[in-house]
Design a protein around this nucleic acid. Structure first.
Lengths: 264, 264
DNA sequence: GATTATTTGTTCGTATGTATT
DNA sequence: CAATACATACGAACAAATAAT
């Protein structure tokens, strides 16, 4: 009868809180501290699930629940066949908080119409891999899209949108659905976007680009490239937008979170 | 012992994708559709886990994985002893959180040197008022600055920095102090920056700008204008940076807010 | 108020699938 | 092809919270 420590002790993890928390969340907190303290370094691999299972004397399920927490916070990335790699040392600083960033994005999307010019399949080559981080050889669907303000005939932007073949059906709904493409994928395919990386650069329009946008060749434009990734750090979608400078500027507001300005 | 349909059929859910996706995500999508279609109404209870388990002939584990997805999207809330209640018909939009935005900015500043070319006093005119929101007639100090990467002679950016007369002393310390100007003001004058508004636009370099930056006239560049305001919404500082596109791109990471929706 | 039934939460065990090395 | 490591899936039991008796 000694083998029933179902929720009792036997776990060599320092139980900090006064209240007995669950094992997996205790383990999650413990691992988080190890990462924050630098015991597990960014870029390096965590111990395997089996290793953690033995070391802390818990079931593999419990280990996975704990790791799921860390994944959700973006601290680690797990990949089958490789392992669990530490990705960040802190659970995402709250230094600045985007104020209305997403809301403004959504409102912008809802206020504009999109017209899909054409779609095609393609295989990611080395150039795409270098630009977007897709694995070379992966299959993708590409849509060429123009974005219009209501009651205007001159497009605000021309975009290229890349999605996985299994999500390609959303490209057919972009015209009618006034919603961002990534949210369509989330809704229709149960994917969960976890992080969005955004790169903004200034470019000069090439002649074909200028023709599509009814703009002058060589005119300056914003190139806004966004990479949408899920919890496993897999790329779900990539969008490349070209916004002529006379029609669009990118505005963001940051609010400084005043509680911990100590770290700077 | 015929009960080993580990990944076979037996699930009365329409499998859409060409590849057999996991059972739990298929189930999650199915349940999501039921909610969106109004089959399960907001405020009402979902079937119990045991019920779903029987109805779809899967294990409880699979049911829970599917429900975890819905919880993560904020569609349902589960409470022990009560059940799983539908909370929203569509996945509510989550806000994004700027990740490392400020940190990256600081690191960029620390990794570069600044050289102040000249400073001057000026009175805000209507043009400045329209661009930056300063009150017309207000006194400001302007510094023209070049920013260099270490060991490089070509500037990364040319900037104009506007500060109030009472803070003008910081402009003399920019060269040596490897810290952002706004944080110097905060430290030396006890001002507390509360919000930062940022506008990014693409521009073509004018001939004088191109000369200062040792770049080609007409070349595309990012114009990043930041307005720093305090708690009273007074403008503390304004900076205008010109970043030639071949030397700089603006990167941001957003992370989707991942509250666990445990509490109501 | 105490007891019981119900429902989700946590934890163990085991086995197989899939991606990578 | 084999070994490794995470992903998915089955089963079983008990704990904790809540609602009903």
């Amino acid at each position: 009868m000694s083998s029933k420590p179902v929720n009792g002790q036997g776990l060599p993890i320092p139980q900090i809180g006064p209240r007995p928390t669950s094992r997996y969340s205790t383990l999650a907190r413990h691992l988080t501290e190890q990462i924050e303290s630098g015991r597990y370094k960014v870029g390096h691999k965590m111990p395997t699930e089996a290793e953690l299972q033995q070391r802390y004397d818990v079931s593999r399920h419990t280990v996975r629940e704990a790791l799921r927490d860390l994944k959700g916070q973006g601290l680690v990335v797990a990949r089958a066949g490789v392992g669990t790699v530490v990705r960040a040392r802190a659970p995402r600083m709250r230094f600045m908080q985007g104020v209305g960033t997403l809301r403004e994005l959504i409102q912008f999307v809802e206020a504009t119409r999109m017209r899909v010019l054409k779609t095609r399949q393609l295989i990611a080559d080395d150039a795409m891999s270098a630009r977007f981080g897709m694995k070379p050889g992966g299959q993708w669907h590409e849509a060429s899209v123009l974005r219009f303000l209501p009651d205007e005939s001159v497009p605000v932007a021309s975009m290229l949108i890349y999605v996985r073949p299994e999500h390609a059906d959303v490209l057919g709904m972009v015209d009618s659905a006034h919603a961002p493409v990534f949210s369509l994928i989330e809704r229709l395919h149960g994917v969960r976007i976890c992080e969005v990386g955004q790169q903004i650069a200034a470019v000069a329009l090439t002649p074909p680009q200028a023709r599509a946008l009814k703009a002058r060749a060589g005119a300056p434009a914003l190139d806004i490239t966004r990479r949408y990734t899920d919890a496993q750090d897999r790329i779900v979608m990539v969008s490349v937008g070209l916004y002529p400078s006379d029609r669009f500027s990118h505005n963001t507001k940051f609010r400084i979170q005043n509680e911990d300005a100590k770290e700077i």
